[in-house]
Simulated scan of single mutants.
Amino acid sequence: MCASNIRSQSGAALILSLLLLLVLTLLAVSSMQGTIMQERMVSGEREGMQSLEIAESALRDAEVALEGINILSVFDGSNGLFGQDDAAPDPLTMDWSTSGNVVAATPVDGVTPRYFIQHMGDANQPEKLTDIVVEGYTHETGAANAQAFRIVAWSPGATGESRRVIESYYARQF
């Protein structure tokens, strides 16, 4: 190459290379942002599922506790046990972490779920139970003393970013 050709170049290749590099950089940054968003969504879903599983374990703890109760007089509005006439707390607005009206269930993976139980009345009298009908318990099955209970369980996730509140109804004979 002669010296006159070098001086006559205007740098078009350099400008084209820089533009191509800019486009590739923008594509890479956009792709990384999408990946980060997907990572956050997956983490949130995993956290929510973990808190649901832990709340379900609290529900099972409450059922086991109910099986161990032999008299209905313990449902007096204290220690997370509410009677038919007691005003149970609103599970969506109460502070589960500091409330004295709940029972701490067995911790799972370092997370302590909580629950409360409300006595709803006779299971074989659906007119008294407007929210539920417990099937299979009638005077014909010998379950004249079957009682219905509402169990509400709460759990945070492992990082505390999610919470789950679940409600179940349970019936048993006394």
Rank of each mutant, 00 (worst) to 15 (best):
A153Q: 08
Y115L: 06
T98P: 04
V108D: 09
G83M: 05
N124R: 14
D90F: 02
F82W: 14
Q50H: 10
G44F: 08
V29F: 07
V64F: 11
S17K: 04
E167T: 15
D109M: 15
G11L: 02
I132C: 12
G83S: 04
A13Q: 07
N70V: 13
M32G: 13
I36E: 01
Q50T: 03
T112H: 07
L27I: 07
M1E: 14
E56G: 03
G121C: 07
I71F: 08
S57I: 03
Q173Y: 12
N70S: 14
A58K: 02
T138V: 01
G80S: 03
T159E: 11
N5K: 11
M49L: 09
A123L: 05
F149K: 04
A13I: 08
Y169H: 15
E161K: 11
G34H: 08
G11I: 03
S30K: 03
F82Q: 08
V42A: 14
N70I: 10
S155W: 09
A148G: 07
V152W: 11
V152E: 11
I69H: 05
P113A: 05
Q125S: 13
L129T: 08
R150K: 15
G83I: 00
G68V: 06
V23I: 05
V42R: 12
L66E: 00
L20K: 00
Q38C: 12
T112M: 02
V111C: 02
A55R: 02
N101S: 15
T159W: 00
V23E: 05
Q147R: 12
N70G: 13
L24T: 15
A3S: 13
V74M: 08
E67V: 00
A13M: 09
G11K: 01
E39H: 12
S155L: 06
M1D: 12
V108F: 14
G48F: 13
S99A: 12
S99T: 10
A171M: 10
V133I: 10
D109E: 15
P126C: 05
A88P: 07
G11R: 03
T35H: 10
N101M: 15
E39V: 13
Q38D: 13
H139V: 09
R7T: 07
L24K: 00
V74P: 01
G68C: 07
V29S: 07
Y137P: 00
D85E: 15
V29L: 09
G77A: 06
A58W: 01
G142L: 01
E127W: 09
A153D: 08
I151F: 02
V102I: 02
D109T: 09
I15R: 04
L72A: 14
D131P: 02
E47K: 02
L81K: 11
Q50R: 09
Q84P: 10
Y115H: 10
D131H: 01
Y169G: 10
N101H: 15
V102C: 08
F82R: 09
S78I: 00
A62R: 05
T106M: 13
M1G: 11
S30M: 00
G160L: 04
L16R: 10
M32S: 14
R46E: 13
A158W: 00
S162F: 01
I69M: 06
I132A: 06
L22D: 03
L66K: 03
A28K: 01
A104F: 04
V64I: 12
E127N: 12
G34W: 05
V74E: 12
